[in-house]
Write a protein that binds this DNA or RNA. Sequence first.
DNA 1: GCCATGTTGATTTTT
DNA 2: TCAACATGGC
Length: 717
Amino acid sequence: MLNEFQQKAVLLPNKNALILAGAGSGKTRVLTSRIAHLCQKQRISPQSILAVTFTNKAAREMRERVEQLLGYSTRGMWLGTFHGIAHRLLRQHAQELGFDRHFKVLDQDDQLQMIKRLVAHLNLDDRLYAPKYLQHYINAKKDEGVRAESLNDKSVDQEVIRLYQAYELRLKADNALDFADLLLCANELLTHNEVLRSYYQKRFQYILIDEFQDTNTIQYKWLEKLYSGDNTVMAVGDDDQSIYGWRGAKVENIQKFIDDFGEVEVIRLEQNYRSTQIILDAANAVITNNIDRMGKTLWSEKERGEQIAFYEAFNERDEADFIAGRIYNLWKNEHLTLKDIAILYRSNAQSRVIEEALLKEGVPYRIYGGVRFFDRAEIKDALAYLRLMALKSDNLAFERIINTPTRGIGAKTLEVIRDYAADYDLSLWHAAKAVIERKLLSSRALKALSEFINMIEELSEYIDTLTLEDLMRLVLEKSGLLRSYEAGKSEKSQQKLENLKELVNAASEFIPPVEDVETNEARLLEFLSFAVLESGEMQADENIDSVQMMTLHSAKGLEFPYVFMTGLEDGLFPSSRSIDSPKKLAEERRLCYVGITRAMAKLTLSYSKVRHQYGDINYQIKSRFLHEIPDDYIKSVRTSVKKSETPSFGISPFEFLKKNTPDSAFKTGDFVNHTKFGIGVFLKSEGEGDERLYHIDFKAGGGKKVLLAKMAKLSKL
DNA sequence: GCCATGTTGATTTTT
DNA sequence: TCAACATGGC
């Protein structure tokens, strides 16, 4: 069942190991079999195992599969995401770190809000100090393990550092941690507390880490803390699939692991069980162009397989149309299941035209990504009520809901409260109460404000008596959230209403990840953390058979019999922001490798000569990655539209251009593409020897077709 | 507090 | 281009 190398990894005696697991090489199987082997054959208690993943989804999957293999629950085993495990550690040992056990976790959105407020508070110009940039800067520093107080960065405006410091103080005052803090604090906990460190080092006899190429500096440090020399670490990863460098992941950690962890057994999993040989050959051919690889060549026992299809589209509409047409054909004529088909793209903006084309063909699709369940505004509003109820000093929650739904508390009132809070160093909640007591507002505002305060206090009283589910219901009711959406008849309001109902559901199904949750309050706090740490896919229509559309990044870890990789154009993929940095380019190439290796049976590549971007027309050139795939793996597919199907305007495109373009000097016209939307033409200008690209597009305007000629950006051909 | 209008900026994303 | 966000008038 397991091949030689997989088996070696699973059965490995007590020794640190690095499993270099190529795409589709059965990595998860090895990991789960390893855990099962330890429990069953080695009689290791699940308590002694720590298994870390990056996403909740991966963690869930792993737990399920281990339990399937073992036939019993693995509840005692620490298996989760880096953040989830850090969170658990911190909840358990908050005292030792000197902070309140009831800390809350800020998500990206909360974090950004807080930074925005600080920027305003410090009177900084938000154009010079863009909150988004500051957020990125702070997170990057934290991911490297650098706190504000020990930061010495001369390369950056000192105001930025001051803001970072202010932000840290704010967090502390609010008893809040951001995502990076979870890791950072957990690391500090293990660094400073020897007793705990040695306890966990003894406890976790076996540490397994998935997706090692995605670990960042702080995660690596964290692992070092848990390693005593007596326990063993198995790191599983693939340097060729490292695509998250831009958010702090360090591929180098793989090499570093080999260097730092004593004698490390390196096992390569190179047999691929997913793709045909030709797809693997293409992937190998591309990735070979990267230097500094650990080195790995995928092979397959599968047949050579179908050639890779390649379509050269005239514009992005043509590209989309081609894809939609092909899929329609696979669906209706070859009776393929749509969920076996994926459309991958580099940037989300590309999805739109493709959606339109699929819609036109009547092909159902599902787009991955977008706003996650717990990130939706209405959900966060509802949760903010719970947050404020649980902890009155939660300023972010306070600001979020004080006037949501609107209850006549405006900016003016809030301003008074904020000033009061600042003057007397109070939380907004307590400031609001004082403002009421001292009658510092108009009677109308006072009334609205005290009604709000009373409502929250009244709701808080139910925390101890009601179940989470009922509490949630009551909050939705009393807060007026339900009412405000019931009033709206739009599709949007209805959807929001649905989501809120789903939230009650989520509350009823919630099982705390730790055992020692006894009080209702503790349960509530766990639920709130859960909502932040597990943003949750919860996409609708999961059951409808549909084409899967997603970015190349979110395709990692997935596989599909049919894969369409789109927009293979320099400047788009690889992204224009990457082409002049070898390091970034290498990451783009890995992304390409990831994309190709998603395909099991058939890969179709496409690029578009013309692409509308940011409101203008760009002439695109083929992605350099396309050139890296040997020609004989590729079969060009002809245009999806016959010449006879292109619209006729009673005048030849050539004549039309001659009449309508300023460039009267051109001599020849070569029709590059006929599409349902128009015709692309390359024209040679006199003299310079440059070529220009013209684009004839038509639009249905007032029932009749209108010819439009647009000149695309001039570019070297 | 809500609506209309102007401005800006635009890979990739999990926790 | 286009959508998110901020600003200003009622």
